[in-house]
Structures are given as structure tokens and as C-alpha cells.
Design a protein around this nucleic acid. Structure first.
Length: 491
RNA sequence: CGGGGCGUAGCGCAGUCCGGUUAGCGCACCUGCUUUGGGAGCAGGGGGUCGCGUGUUCGAAUCACGCCGCCCCGACCA
């Protein structure tokens, strides 16, 4: 068993931290609230990035890059926006250091004060819309469909590896459209892209929905989201897509000339997912032995562990696997033949399990002579002996099966942990003694939502899309309600 | 910003209360031999401004004062 990972039931947070650190996904840094994403963690991000980037391109988007710094005055042009972000902005005030005249080291040169402070972007709407003003004149310039891969900084009071760090990596799409209908369609389309990515690549079932006014993005007219359930039953927002109306167009005076020759403000969207998804991936699937990675995002899909009694065996087994490795490569399946003879097989087994490698093959001389190979799958921890002949096809199918199994398991868990409640007593009881999401009627007022949050710490995660309409009464106020919404405690 | 915890070798810790040999232990690391089908064994070896500063003392990891950093829990947030 994995020696060094705190079991989930003992301390879920510690389990999560142990996984991140001990599997080499990330490390703490000397900067408060900031993390180092180590090669193994970054490889997962690269896989996520590649899949998403492809989907963005397929839906007509192009990449660009805007500055890290935003003039302070830009941020305040959209009232709700600045209010939402003001409390967590890093600010650049000076542009030079000098030697400390009183001793060693350097100090900020007081004479090098910026005339206007620069904000390290917490998100890029303002700097981007400042550019869009110059790029958009006519309906022929629309739609403008741009994405940026970037880092952003939000000075969080309390941070957690991947889930909430002061600096994080993400993508942010920023689009401009001629009509509100088109912008809303874009908003929903990108939510669909995120949903498909979460379910097909991350094997993470999500609920698509809209945020309530309280939870809406600062500056948005409507915020759509996908919500996922972690193994401890807490909700995690996995992606957001915003319909920004004309808020930023008006703030930055971005108008276009219509076909009819009229000046109108453009309609906008923005949407993003971040390295937080890595946290979601870990918390959704992993177990007490380590990571469980879905094959489609695993940096390494197959590991081959030779079991040898000397250099001769190693060479024989390697030779045996050569055609297999060639075939795997041709199919785009990533693999590693671990010929490191300074570590013993048992150590390697435990190590690759901890790192969540989906499939492990082991071969010693017994298998070699018998024409077989041992196959172990990480998701169920099942081991079986297979014929070496035809192993490539077997692996190919197994990877598909593992991907599906991980998703189904997560979906079954989530579905089993959504509880419908109809009275306030039931609600309180479920929040205090149960786990997971609550589906309940709500009267639609921010006041009620606020009150419930105050009393239980549960928030409305979303109003599901395509939500069945049914008459009921608000679980808190007793006022009439037409649909149920999802409540949960959240990350 | 409040509450709690912790800073001693790369990691995890003991030693601190009650000051006194050369600051220990486990893991990891290095060398050699034997091993290799579930985290190997033996032998030898390297590695320390005891978070920082000031003070008390013949003497400080240990006592006093100040500072810094990190983790966990809460308020804020993706």
C-alpha cells in the first residue's frame, strides 16, 4: 500500500495535499500563495490545453496575447467589474530598484514611481476591450472570436494547491458580436465545449447551469457554469462562460456600424477554465493509493515493467516488446519501458500506481517463456495474465474501457449524492448530516439565497439548464417556485 | 485579518519543559556486494548558519524579547 499518503477518511484535505506533493504534480514555492507546477503536473495541463485549444480552433476561435499589466484606470471603467476584483489585485507602483544606501541589498527607488499604477491582470476584459475599440468598426469585423492562454493573479487570502492559488494559468476567451442572440449562442456553445471536455477527457460528469445574481461574474449579465462533485461531496465550479451584454462595449465605447448604417454597441462574451481543473481531476477520481488519471489526460498511459535477473533478461524482454512499442507509438498511445535496474519491480509498481498510470504491463521470464504478459489496470486495481499475441489491441480497448469506467463511477457517485429536499428541516438535516448536492425549490430572491448561505454555508451552485419546470414552494421562505436549483457547499 | 499548529540534513521527526560531551533517529542520497513476480538485505560513507535578529549566561537548538515564513481552520473568492 502507498506508504506516504494520508487516507481520505482520516483527513480529506491532507489526502489531497499529499497526492499533489508526493506524486510530483506541484510543489510549494517561496512566494506565499504561489505554487510550482512540476513537470508531471504540467504535462497534465499540456494535455488539457491541447484538447481545449483544438476545440476552440474547431469552433472558429484564434489565439492572441494581451499584456500582463492593466492601467488602473481601465479596471474602473466598468463599475461592477472593478468592485468584484478590487479587493484582490496586485499593484505595480514602481519600475526600478536601487542599492540600499544604508546597507546591503536593494530597495525600491522612491524616485521611480509610476505616474499611473499598473494592475497585474486578475482577468483581461478591460485591457482587451480597450484594444477591441480599435479593431471593430463595422459589422464586417464581427464576430471577433479570440482566446488567450495566460497567467492571472488574484491575491487570495487563503490558497490551496491548484484549487486556489494567487497566480494561476488559464485560458480566457473574449468575443464580440453584432447581436445579443449571437452572443448568447456563443456563451452557450462554449459552455458546451467545456462540458464535452470535462466529460470526455476528464471523465468528470458536470451539471450545466446558470449562476444566480449573487454568484455572477463581476460585469456579466448572465454567467453560465459547469459544476462538478468531488469525492467529499463538495461542489467545484469547473468552468464558466459569461454573457457580458453591452457592459464592456459601453465602458470602452466599442461601437460598430450596422448594415443599415447605424452605430451600435457590440455584444460580448468571455469564458475560461484554469489549472484548477487539475485539482478537480485529482479530487474526482483518485484514491488512497494515489492518483487515478483518465487515459485521455494521463501523461503516461502505459508503463512496461520488466522483471529481470540480469542484463540478459532485460535485453530479451526489451526485444520482445519492440514491435509492441512501435505499434503503440503508431496509435498515439504513450508508454514507457522502465529499464531502470536500480529500482526493484515492487517499488515501480507502487510508484506508477501512485502516479495514476492507467495501464501497467509486467513481464518476467515466466511470462516470456509462456508467451504471456501481466496486465494491471489502475482504476480497478485488477490484474490479469494476457496472451502477448494481440496485446496492442487489448491495451487499446482497455484504455477506452478505463476512460469509460472512471466516468461512470464518478457519475454514479454524483447521482447517488444529489438529494431532493422539500422542507427547511430536511434541508438543514441534509446539510449537516449528509454529503453532496441538494436539489430544492427556491423563491428566486437574493435575500433568501443570502440567508441560506449564512445559516448553512451552502450556496446555490447553479440553476440547471433544461431544468424541469414544476410547481413547488421555496424550501426556506415558502414562497411559490417553478423549479428546483442545486445547493451545495463548494470549494 | 482572527483562531490553531509548525520552523533542527532533501523529506519526516526526537531533543526545548529543567541551558552543559562531538546535536540524534527514520526515509532519501553516495560506494560495494548480494538481490529483482508487490515499496530488498548487509557493510561502509557524505550531508547541519538548529527560521532570522537582539539579549541573558562561563556556556544557548534549549531561557527572554522582537521579527520572518509556512501549513490547517474561518471570513473573501474560480
Amino acid at each position: 500500500m502507498a506508504k506516504e499518503i494520508t487516507p481520505r477518511v482520516n483527513d480529506y484535505s491532507q489526502w489531497y495535499n499529499d497526492l499533489v506533493i508526493k506524486t510530483g504534480l506541484a510543489d510549494y514555492s517561496s512566494v506565499r500563495g504561489c505554487m510550482v507546477i512540476k513537470p508531471y503536473g504540467y504535462a497534465i495541463w499540456e494535455n488539457m490545453r491541447d484538447a481545449l485549444d483544438k476545440a476552440f480552433k474547431e469552433t472558429g476561435h484564434v489565439n492572441a496575447y494581451f499584456p500582463l499589466f492593466i492601467p488602473k484606470s481601465f479596471l474602473s471603467k466598468e463599475a461592477a467589474h472593478v468592485e468584484g476584483f478590487a479587493k484582490e489585485c496586485a499593484v505595480v507602483t514602481h519600475y526600478r530598484l536601487k542599492n540600499d544606501p544604508n546597507g546591503k541589498g536593494v530597495i525600491v527607488d522612491p524616485e521611480a514611481k509610476l505616474e499611473e499604477e499598473l494592475i497585474v491582470r486578475p482577468t483581461s476584459e478591460t485591457i482587451i476591450w480597450n484594444s477591441y475599440k480599435n479593431w471593430i468598426q463595422s459589422y464586417r469585423d464581427l464576430p471577433l472570436l479570440i482566446n488567450q492562454w495566460a497567467n492571472v493573479v488574484r491575491w487570495e487570502m487563503r490558497t490551496r494547491l491548484f484549487l486556489r492559488t494567487a497566480e494561476f494559468l488559464w485560458q480566457e476567451g473574449h468575443t464580440a458580436h453584432a447581436t445579443p442572440a449571437e452572443a448568447i449562442e456563443e456563451t452557450e456553445k462554449m459552455l458546451g465545449v467545456y462540458t464535452q471536455f470535462a466529460e470526455e477527457f476528464m471523465a468528470l460528469p458536470v451539471i450545466q447551469g446558470k449562476k444566480t445574481a449573487n454568484e455572477r461574474f463581476a460585469g456579466a449579465v448572465e454567467t453560465y457554469c459547469i459544476e462538478a462533485m468531488m469525492q467529499d461531496g463538495l461542489a467545484l465550479q469547473a468552468g464558466t462562460s459569461h454573457f457580458l451584454g453591452q457592459n464592456f462595449a459601453k465602458a470602452f465605447d466599442v461601437q460598430f456600424l450596422t448594415r443599415e448604417g447605424k452605430q451600435e454597441h457590440v455584444w460580448a462574451t468571455s469564458w475560461g477554465v484554469s489549472t484548477r481543473l487539475i485539482g478537480a481531476l485529482i479530487m474526482a477520481h483518485s484514491d488512497d493509493d494515489g492518483l487515478v488519471l483518465p487515459p485521455k489526460l494521463a501523461p503516461l498511459q502505459v508503463v512496461i515493467v520488466p522483471i529481470t535477473k540480469g542484463a540478459d533478461d532485460m535485453a530479451k524482454i526489451y526485444e520482445k516488446f519492440e514491435p509492441v512499442m512501435k505499434a503503440l507509438k503508431a496509435k498515439g498511445i504513450t508508454f514507457k519501458f522502465d529499464d531502470d535496474d536500480t529500482k526493484r519491480p515492487g517499488f515501480k509498481f507502487a510508484e506508477y500506481e501512485m502516479k495514476g498510470v492507467p495501464v501497467r504491463l509486467a513481464m518476467g521470464m515466466r511470462d516470456y517463456d509462456g508467451g504471456t504478459v501481466e496486465v494491471a489496470r489502475r482504476d480497478t486495481k485488477e490484474k490479469s495474465v494476457q496472451q502477448f499475441e494481440g496485446i496492442v489491441e487489448y491495451i487499446e480497448n482497455l484504455l477506452v474501457d478505463i476512460q469509460a469506467n472512471i466516468f461512470n463511477k464518478a457519475k454514479a457517485f454524483r447521482d447517488a449524492n444529489i438529494t431532493e429536499v422539500n422542507t427547511w428541516d430536511e434541508f438543514k438535516n441534509q446539510i449537516e448530516n449528509g454529503v453532496g448536492f441538494i436539489s430544492a425549490h427556491w423563491d428566486g430572491t437574493p435575500e433568501t439565497e443570502e440567508k441560506i448561505k449564512e445559516l448553512t454555508k451552502a450556496t446555490i451552485r447553479c440553476i440547471p439548464l433544461n431544468n424541469p419546470q414544476q410547481d413547488g414552494v421555496c424550501v426556506f421562505s415558502g414562497q411559490p417556485s417553478k423549479e428546483r436549483v442545486i445547493f451545495a457547499k463548494a470549494y
